[in-house]
Nucleic acid binder design. Sequence first.
DNA 1: CATGTCACG
DNA 2: ACGTACGTGACATGA
Length: 552
Amino acid sequence: MARHGVTVRGDIFDTMVAHYLINPEASHKLDDVASFHLNYRPQPITELIGTGKNALTMDQVPVEDVGPYACEDADVALRLVPVLTEALKEVDGGKGRLLQIAEEIEFPLVPVLAAMEMAGVKVDEKVLVDISRQMDAELARLEAEIYTQAGREFGIGSPKQIGEVLFNPPPTEEDEAAYQTWLQDMKDYEAGEVEGDPDAKPKSKKQLSEEAPTFGLGLQPLGKTKSGQPKTDERVLSELAQEHALPALILDWRKVAKLKSTYVDKLPELIHSDTGRIHTDYNQTIAATGRLSSTNPNLQNIPIRTDLGKEIRKAFVAEPGHLLMAADYAQIELRIIASMSGDPDMTAAFIDAQDIHTAAAARVFDVTYDAVTRAQRDRVKQVNYGIPYGISAFGLAQRLRIGNSEAQALIDQYRASYPRVIEFLDGLIDEARQRGYVETLLGRRRYLPLITSRNPNDRAFAERVAVNMPIQGTQADMIKKAMIAIHASLGEVSEGARMILQVHDELVFEVPEADVDAVAAFASEQMKAALPLGDVPIVVEVGVADNWLDAH
DNA sequence: CATGTCACG
DNA sequence: ACGTACGTGACATGA
């Protein structure tokens, strides 16, 4: 509506967002919420438009039918307001913290997200087109090398076919001959006529795919997927790379193909013709922890880890006369753990502005801070990052590629080093068992009915969620509060500055060059002040450049 | 529409 | 014997 000149004003009560707070994992569809909270079943939209590919669009429905339907939706939403307000109060035992989150965080965030979506982000199409061409050449090169190494052609994008190529037994001479015939049939099919015999019809596609060769390299499979297919994921292929040249080539191909199809070729299609920019949708009611998600396109998973990925991030740029500014919370999950647990040693390390992974390694390996080796730091870093997810010895062993008992020893040492942290995390699981839910620092909730399941896998999963949600969710509360505060006053600091992206622990701004210092100071201050963590300092790292990569 | 894979925090 | 670190979204394949 804003794009068509209609400005929506006033306070918001969003029934969908309210229900997300009441039970984040339930369905938030208006009809479902009305069924549950009003015991009223609205007229299904399918009664007006039908279903499937024959479904009408609303403009094709007689207005005397659309009117009552639309009014019912508005009426139901309005009638839900007092009911959901009461529910928001009640779920918190009358303390009203959930209602407070609704009124002070989620509802005020709605227009902030709308403004960010409207603002969009500029993408340099030329950079992407250039990368795309380089990728085409690289893919062609890899494809040829892959077919050579495999001894035959196959669909590299198909995990099923990769499995056949890697794990089926090697060809006999008969197989080789049959393959040559099949290749010729395939070419005939593509050409539409049989070579050397203009009257003969080529075989059908179905026939050809049934006759496709099935010989392979005879490598040893390393695990199966849920459906029983041999796994061909990154882990398996990098392991198999020690046996044969093909797996590494497939990994290279996959990496390039993934980045090309998902980002390099897709992003230019999404440039809006009116604005020349890319406009994501932020979803406020999807993630059960309280985080946002981003779709169409997802701008929260733009590459950064590999060299090729970095090139893609460079295509996100500022308008002329402006710069991009990225402001990140530094180690925010660990700071939240330190604060919520009250652990004195972890807190002290943050107060002293020590490198938190080095400080932890010093405790775990019982050496001085300065004596910690790079290898020790890297190991403990994995433990530090695994902690908020409820890591197991098995999981840590896989990540570090070390033995199970060695991983267990590392975890035991960590537990002994930070007993208050461990008490806190174990306490979250206890709390979940007793109350059936866990909550963030501010009282955002997630229910965990499986915490008492007799199925050990379900129960273990619920326990990991019990540990993770309060931490990830508190982080989400914090950055949401910061976004609201920043949006409210950014105009006073810089007329031309816009907050344009949020990536969980990072905010990205597009700022007139002259206002960069002022906006950096302002955003950093607001992010730090949004949700104080008591003794634990909050650190925000700010970077500025003409593109998103270099702004980090 | 399910599956497998992989991009991010 | 199984599964194994949380939270997401998008793509290609194939039924």
